[in-house]
Amino acid sequence: MVRYAAVFPAAVGFFSVVVLTIAWNVNNARHRHGAAGFALMQAVGQCGPLVGTRLYPDADAPYYSRGMAVCAGAMVGVAVLAAGLRWWLARVNRRWDREEEAEAEGRGEGAGEDEALVDGGDGGRRKRAFRYML
């Protein structure tokens, strides 16, 4: 009975994370790369069911320790990769902030936190169009 009851909070956690991961992936893709990132994420993500059918043989019933251990290891791996990606994206955002501040000070123009300006390449200045979501 306890194992059956534990399925409900687990399902709530698993299914909500999928939606958040899709939104994070698409929103962190630069202009016109969102579709490719989404397609790649889905292609890799759909490999899970292919592997999963082999992880739970009838011989391991009823607890399926081997399959559960592999899945737990994969979840830990994903958590480590997500933490590393978050660290890297924050580092890139900080570097962009320093570059924008240096450029604003060098030209004598004040750029507010929400109005960071960057060189448009053609001599004009524009607002930065992209920033990673953490």
Rank of each mutant, 00 (worst) to 15 (best):
V2C: 04
A6M: 12
V7Q: 09
F8T: 14
A11I: 02
V12D: 02
F14L: 13
V17S: 15
V18Y: 14
V18I: 15
W24S: 08
N27K: 10
A29I: 04
H31V: 13
H31N: 14
F38I: 09
M41L: 13
Q42E: 06
V44F: 13
G48C: 03
P49S: 01
R54E: 11
Y56I: 01
D58G: 09
D58P: 09
D60E: 14
A61G: 09
Y63H: 13
Y63T: 14
R66K: 06
R66A: 09
A69E: 11
C71W: 03
G73S: 09
G73C: 11
M75L: 15
V76A: 14
G77L: 04
R86S: 13
W87V: 08
A90Y: 02
N93W: 01
R94I: 00
R94L: 06
R98F: 00
E99M: 09
E99A: 05
E100K: 03
E100I: 14
A102C: 04
A104N: 05
E105K: 10
G106R: 06
R107H: 08
R107K: 06
G108K: 05
G112S: 07
E113W: 02
A116F: 00
V118S: 02
G121D: 07
G121L: 06
G124C: 13
G124W: 12
R126Q: 03
R128S: 00
R128Y: 00
A129W: 04
L134W: 06
L134Q: 06
